[in-house]
């Protein structure tokens, strides 16, 4: 499943970049993220819970930063499994940051998400809607952190 989108943040590009690379802040903004633990400068462990109607799943993910060009581009890969339930998730994502001058920063993202196993049975159509909802929630939370005025 491929996703792409963009959002603007009223903050200068270096500040946005810094927050994107701040695991604590990311954990707070990613919906359902219970924890992020830093393994190395470019590798993290995260636990993320997702719920679609009656179905709940918890994935233990390893997130690797594959490439980064501060403060403009970041390529990451996440892979993980749902403990013992033969359900797996993998995601490759690309983030690019463009300065909009006074107006702030535009964040563009592309992601390719794959879900296999029991959750795959629920149907990709509904999964796509769920991911879209989660991205909206993320964007709202992330903006809230960088634009204190807007959040108030």
């Amino acid at each position: 499943m491929k996703f792409a989108g963009a959002f603007d943040v009223k903050a200068p590009r270096p500040a946005v970049w810094e927050k994107i690379r701040d695991p604590g802040l990311m954990a707070a903004c990613i919906p359902g993220c219970d924890s992020i633990e830093k393994v190395s400068e470019t590798s993290y462990r995260a636990v993320v819970a997702v719920k679609v109607g009656p179905i709940s799943a918890r994935f233990s993910l390893v997130v690797d930063i594959v490439r980064e060009e501060p403060p403009t581009r970041l390529v990451a890969r996440a892979r993980g499994e749902e403990g013992g339930r033969a359900s797996a998730l993998s995601c490759e994502s690309l983030l690019s940051l463009t300065s909009l001058g006074e107006a702030g920063t535009r964040v563009e993202y592309e992601a390719d998400v794959d879900v296999t196993g029991r959750l795959g049975k629920f149907g990709l159509g509904i999964m796509r809607k769920k991911v879209e909802q989660l991205s909206e929630a993320f964007v709202a939370a992330f903006r809230g952190r960088l634009e204190p005025a807007a959040a108030a």
């Binding site: 009656p54 179905i55 709940s56 339930r85 029991r118 959750l119 049975k121 629920f122």
Partner: peptide, 8 residues
């Protein structure tokens, strides 16, 4: 059906 598929 969801229980059989281990969805819930």
């Amino acid at each position: 059906a969801m229980i059989n598929a281990r969805l819930v």
